[in-house]
Design a binder for these strands. Structure first.
Lengths: 331, 331
DNA sequence: TTACAGTATGGAATCGATTCCACGAAAGGC
DNA sequence: GCCTTTCGTGGAATCGATTCCATACTGTAA
């Protein structure tokens, strides 16, 4: 591989001048500029990133840690983040934590060792020692989607309260009174926020305040199924079910179908926080609050870059949209 | 940030010895080992990756270039690749090419500059100059899922012929004779392989060889819809439709519904190359050949690591499985 | 003509690690 | 008890870039 020394030799100039040309310094003559560029091209020279990073004390690399890139929300977010980062000359290191604190810590170590310029973090559960160490070292960090207690970093996430309000408005429009709400874990800020917003808003939207209709799972299909089962076992017979995330709605739907039969199930309307492409294809189709993962990813990178540049970006809640898939009037 | 010099000073040893301890060289005494490790811990020392990379001429970073991480196939593949890489001490740089050659070239430049130790490439279309340059520089590269003409790199991908055979067997079992096949672009090796396998196998499975039943799109829903439309416009009335990838099947299904009505559509059986989670929820449910993206990602990384170690890994086609979602007997 | 400002350049120090080399001390062989 | 390995260590060179500093040169003003 050709180094800057080779380029300098071929151009008949010093490495100093060569470096200045290659990094676009104005302190260069047109003559040396053309000679250096020609030599670089002929040799197929590519800057040695690690060497440059060593000297400049920055890597132009951002770390992105998500819990699982396979989730549509995160893959959309990762796509947007990568595009936005690239548009600003940054490259993205990707890692999955798989909801496992040990793995998250290992990743944070690797990111720290790579000397990423900043971190996009979609945290799982609580604060970890590594994270604390990085914060102390003043590594620029932004949080995506979920907050972490005790971590004072800008947060870019869904407007959970606004999303729940959209769902409540829809439930009211559809004339539902007996609505089952299947929430997520209180330990996730998303779970808590959606739950709180629902409790705070239901009465104003003409929805029963009977707490028998409310239960919570773990944001996964099976946990949600158990929660839904508990609701039905309490004798509640809702006309609509509101799942606090995509998997939750699915799990709830499965149980309703199994316990009440497909016919009864198709008389019940479902609404989900989190839209999944194929909710249009279920029967009945599921209406949903759609997260704007693209905008969250983009905003997260922008905020992080601002932080890297020494600015003080502010957290932002990105608005949701509502996808109404209900057919016809309710009887 | 603490450097190895700080650690050495604190431990009262030279940087040489300190480095040996930290990188686990056997040439160290138990005494200096414990002193160095204690000092490192106290200072919160983290190896400076770029500096290490500069000296060692390797980065322990792999580049992963996919066309779009939002596709379920790629996000599953990326997840598996990242996990496998991490298990071997590597970190993964992720980039999306968005089916855009210019963007792919920009990414390859960035990867080259970062001096990734190897490249996992899910190519779009043909060879690009950058790729050629990297191959000439003998950068270890493996291809994922699609081949590129003229590029002699190990390929880890789906067993397209085997998958088509599974679909053909199913079509035969279900007693279909008039089967519409909506293919993908011939310029993609996946499109060409699936198409060829279908043509080669249909007769032996009792399927009509009428070419009016066959058309091709661009592997996207809209292009597939147009292809399906052409088939119907030719007067063909298939009892089953075989889509050469997930989006293709969806586009075809949409057109069948729109043109023949939902009732007629539900009498037609669909089978897709590429399984998508929610094919279970469509009506009628879609049977599918499932790609083992996880295994492809894992095998790709293993092959790449072998290549990096100077070995000569061999290409591998990963077997598909078949998800039969057909209900009951056909009349 | 002399002095001075402004540019372009070469040379050298530097970033933070790894690794080669040489040296002293301890251990083993006769 | 002397000679030869072996082992641990310190010091220095090195990786490939960037950037500071000093210098040479150009052109302008007094």
């Amino acid at each position: 591989m050709a180094t800057i020394k080779d380029v300098a030799a071929r151009a008949g100039l010093s490495v100093g001048t060569t470096s200045r040309v290659l990094s676009g310094s104005p302190q260069t003559s047109p003559d040396s500029r053309s000679r250096v560029l020609a030599a670089a091209k002929e040799l197929g020279y590519v800057t040695h990133g690690p060497a440059r990073s060593l000297r400049r004390a920055r890597t132009d690399v951002l770390g992105l840690l998500v819990s699982d890139i396979r989730s549509p929300f995160f893959s959309e977010l990762a796509h947007a983040a990568e595009q936005e980062a690239r548009a600003h000359g940054y490259t993205v290191l990707l890692a999955n934590a798989n909801e496992d604190a040990a793995q998250a810590d290992a990743v944070l170590d690797a990111f720290a060792s790579q000397r990423v310029d900043g971190l996009l973090l979609s945290p799982q559960g609580p604060q970890t020692p590594r994270l604390e160490a990085l914060l102390e070292k003043r590594l620029p960090i932004v949080l995506l989607n979920r907050a972490i207690e005790g971590v004072d970093a800008p947060l870019y996430g869904t407007d959970n309260a606004g999303g729940v309000a959209q769902a409540l408005a829809w439930l009211q429009r559809r004339g539902h009174r007996d609505v089952a709400f299947i929430g997520g874990p209180e330990s996730f800020s998303t779970g808590a926020e959606r739950h709180d917003a629902y409790l705070a808003g239901r009465e104003a939207h003409g929805i029963s305040t009977d707490d028998d209709l409310i239960d919570a799972g773990d944001f996964l299909a099976d946990g949600a199924a158990e929660a839904m089962l508990r609701v039905l076992d309490r004798g509640a017979r809702p006309t609509a079910v509101f799942g606090a995330n995509g998997q939750t709605t699915l799990g709830a739907m499965r149980v309703v179908r199994e316990r009440l039969g497909a016919e009864a199930a198709s008389g019940i309307e479902f609404v989900s926080f989190d839209d999944i492409e194929w909710f249009a294809y279920t029967s009945p189709p599921i209406s949903a609050v759609r997260n704007d993962a693209t905008e969250i990813g983009r905003a997260g990178v922008q905020g992080l870059l601002e932080l890297i540049d020494g600015g003080t970006p502010t957290s932002r809640r990105v608005a949701t949209s509502f996808i109404d898939r209900a057919k016809g009037d309710r009887a």
